[in-house]
């Protein structure tokens, strides 16, 4: 048996020092949801997220109960949404918003706290889809509740995309302006990265890496 001192030490951590599991994050690839038609893409996204993550919260709660250690957050990260926007026919801010609202609705349907991945990696330059995604960020964050967004604007190897940096400055100001009633809360759901790490599970900058072969 483990010695009593160790047991009391662990109990103290749980009881007095708030030992907990901060987050479990499920990575879901959206690559299979790409479609030129925005409604079809949204339908695929909603169905995929709600199918893969339907048991996430329930199983999380079961683990909490089994081990007696709380799991504070349950979250989802997805492939950078720029891959969806890129493939849309006649992409527009409205269509971006529709995709984001689908993510919001799917995440709420499976009862997670946040969904991350409304993201673009533009350190080597922006494609038209990525440009549009960045432009849509303020509207998206102001009109969704639990969608998180991130943009990688530089890497040590590629340098810094100064155009993207300038654009992100404007995006941050607009996002704050659009949510001024709530203290600029949209900005709390936005991260601007240098050297963004793939498969980062930490909100608001979470997204599923390109190289990941899961789900």
């Amino acid at each position: 048996m483990i010695n009593p001192f160790e047991i009391i030490e662990t109990i103290n951590m749980i009881d007095k020092e708030n030992l907990d599991i901060r987050t479990i994050t499920m990575g879901i690839s959206l690559k299979s949801c790409v479609d030129p038609d925005v409604d079809k893409a949204c339908e695929k996204i909603y169905n995929k997220i709600t199918a893969y993550a339907k048991d996430l919260v329930r199983v999380g709660e079961e683990i909490e109960e089994q081990y007696g250690i709380p799991i504070i957050n349950k979250r989802i990260s997805v492939t950078p949404v720029s891959c969806i926007i890129e493939a849309l026919e006649e992409p527009s801010i409205e269509k971006c918003l529709k995709v984001a609202k689908t993510l919001d609705a799917a995440a709420k349907a499976v009862r997670v706290n946040f969904i991350g991945g409304y993201s673009a990696l533009v350190h080597k330059g922006c494609t038209p889809g990525e440009k549009l995604l960045i432009e849509s960020i303020p509207e998206v964050l102001a009109n969704t509740e639990i969608v998180c967004s991130s943009v990688n604007v530089g890497t040590t190897k590629a340098g810094i995309n100064m155009d993207a940096v300038a654009e992100m400055g404007r995006v941050i100001k607009k996002a704050a302006e659009l949510t001024k009633e709530t203290g600029g809360f949209a900005c709390a759901k936005l991260v601007v990265f240098c050297n963004a790490v793939e498969d980062n599970p930490f909100m608001a900058g979470a997204f599923l890496g390109e190289a990941k072969a899961i789900a």
Partner: peptide, 30 residues
């Protein structure tokens, strides 16, 4: 586990004790 925990919580309150029931694996892992 949940039923035992709620029963233990009742005893803890009645007798003014602190009672915890944890999976043994938690301690081994720690």
């Amino acid at each position: 586990v949940s039923k035992l925990n709620s029963e233990l919580a009742k005893i803890a309150e009645e007798m003014n004790l602190s009672i915890h029931l944890q999976n043994e694996e938690v301690f081994s892992s720690m």
